[in-house]
Design a protein around this nucleic acid. Structure first.
Lengths: 122, 122
DNA sequence: CGGCATCCGAACAGATACTG
DNA sequence: CAGTATCTGTTCGGATGCCG
């Protein structure tokens, strides 16, 4: 690509932080990671534990997490069929950074909305 | 609201992590926080340093950051008028968690896209 | 049980024009 | 310089129906 710009390194959406937030910044991803951090879950278990998620968004979010190697999908060819989702090693390592974010949020947003909401990464 | 459900504490979008990501998970917020973490900036300086941001989104994102007390807006009544944006103490304290996220992203996404992008929180 | 395909409204974000 | 206002295309996400 030919370009004549002189602009010295403008911060772009391609930086690692932005790429990661593009993936985990949506409505459901961190909720699923939080649930899966407690152990493997089946499809319908996840839907019951995450308040308000639709089948479509659950499937879509799980597929994205699979593609990014954060979640592992294991099919057990039984009858009835069983599918279990669990965090990969990379997925487990993501919980630390997410917890530090959560701690900041608790410290700075708790006062704003006096909600009594359970922590995702205790 | 009356409900007969037995579901124990489903994880909801009201948890601190989700509320925070609703605020910082958009396309521009962390880029602005990254730039401002290097010092105060004027409106047009920010627009030049953040690649591709429109005036509308710059204004909108700055207003949200003000509302959340992450960014401070200081107007100097000169001629021509000058407005400077800087991180609040809360804003500066957010950079730590964001850096831990960035480090994870560098470790796990670097290989996927071989981009040479500058770090936001070095 | 664990999905996929389709439709549709709402929210998001860019381009453009205008202002104190 | 530092915005506001409006219009418009794009994306997100919920509802519904069907399938192996």
């Amino acid at each position: 690509m030919e370009h004549t710009t002189y602009v010295p390194d403008p911060y772009s959406r391609n930086c690692p932080s932005r790429q990661l937030l593009d993936r985990i910044g949506d409505r459901w991803t961190v909720l699923l990671v939080g649930v899966l951090s407690t152990g493997p879950h089946r499809f319908n278990e996840l839907q019951r534990k995450v308040d308000g998620i639709s089948q479509k968004m659950l499937t879509q979010t799980l597929r994205n997490l699979e593609r990014d190697h954060i979640v592992h999908r294991e099919v057990y060819p039984e009858s009835p069929p069983r599918v279990e989702y669990s965090l990969t090693e990379a997925g487990r390592s993501l919980c630390g950074p997410l917890k530090s974010l959560e701690m900041w949020a608790v410290a700075h947003y708790q006062a704003m909305h006096g909600e009594d909401s359970p922590l995702l990464f205790p």
